[in-house]
Amino acid sequence: MKNAPFLLILFVMALLSSCSGDDIEPTGVNEIIVDQIDYNLIAVNNSGITGKATFTRDSNDNTTILIELVNTNTDEHPAYVNFNSAAEGGPIAITLEPCTCAVSTTVVTQLDDGTPIDFDKLLNLDGHVSIQNSPSNDEIIAVVDIGINAN
């Protein structure tokens, strides 16, 4: 029984660090989604990881990008909106919150260089979303063309 306090602490730590959908919080109070577009992420580099990138505009005119990955683990996956099509590749336009527990939610107001951007400008962006393997491995594991590049 000497290990009981240690096991209790270990159990509590595991419980607190587990992944759940409760971690996703809305961007404001009493929001209603007024515009939404979904883009299906496709697996690349034999990752098997797919998912969805959902762009929304709410009644408070907030623009949010929600990434939901499928066939992944709880590892952290950096996520970005890049310029150009996925086939062309391109520099990072917007650094998104990393996908932790297969989910990322980012409220977007500007490009990384400070240029303002909103929902309508994202729909007309020459860009794509890319998901990387890990913070230490920048191999792309999932992509989708967005904006003017989307089919």
Score class of each variant (00 low, 15 high):
A79H: 02
A86L: 05
N71H: 07
D58W: 00
F83I: 07
E68L: 14
P78N: 02
N82F: 01
I67P: 10
L69E: 01
D58P: 02
F83V: 04
S59I: 11
S85E: 06
T56K: 11
A53Y: 04
A53G: 07
A53E: 05
H77T: 03
S85G: 11
T54D: 06
E76N: 14
D58G: 00
N73W: 04
T56A: 11
I67F: 07
F83N: 09
E68C: 11
N62H: 14
N62V: 02
D61S: 14
N84T: 01
D75V: 00
I67Y: 07
K52E: 12
D75M: 01
D58A: 01
N82Y: 03
L66R: 13
H77P: 08
A79T: 04
L66P: 12
T63E: 05
N60F: 09
E68Q: 15
A53H: 05
N71S: 06
A79W: 00
A79S: 10
F55V: 11
I67A: 09
T64A: 14
F83Q: 07
G51M: 07
A86F: 05
T74H: 02
A87K: 15
L66W: 10
F55G: 10
F83W: 11
T72N: 08
A87M: 15
T56G: 11
A87G: 12
A53D: 03
